[in-house]
Amino acid sequence: MASAPPARAGYEHFPHGADVGVRGFGPTKAAAFEQAALALTAVITDPATVEPREPVAIRCSAPDDELLLVEWLNEVIYAMATLDMLFSRFRVTIQDGELVATAWGEPVDRARHRPAVEIKGATYTALAVRREPNGRWVAECVVDV
């Protein structure tokens, strides 16, 4: 494969009729997954307001990359819901369909974070994990809010 300029990591949202899509991208699949999780936080609040103080370990697995993305985002949603936390930093490694991650965040502070919505779940709608010709990885799906 021809060498491409190193892809920068980042995230964005994309519109869906009733809800919102999260899209992460980066130089590796794992980086794209990390950014997709950050996009998830950004659906709720500005990630810059969330201090990455406390680490939470997350693991999951799935038969393919796309199902793994849904699985991963649902694990983050579950951690947010049950620990009452928001996360602003993620480190992900993926090997043979196994994802091992650490999410750093802090308890929800309603005055400071002003959470706009809570997320019900990640969906299989507009779900894709792909590598673009320039080498950049993209991980995206719609989330139900």
Partner: peptide, 8 residues
């Protein structure tokens, strides 16, 4: 029914 996405 929504006419405009949350994003928009």
């Amino acid at each position: 029914g929504r006419a405009v996405s949350r994003h928009e």
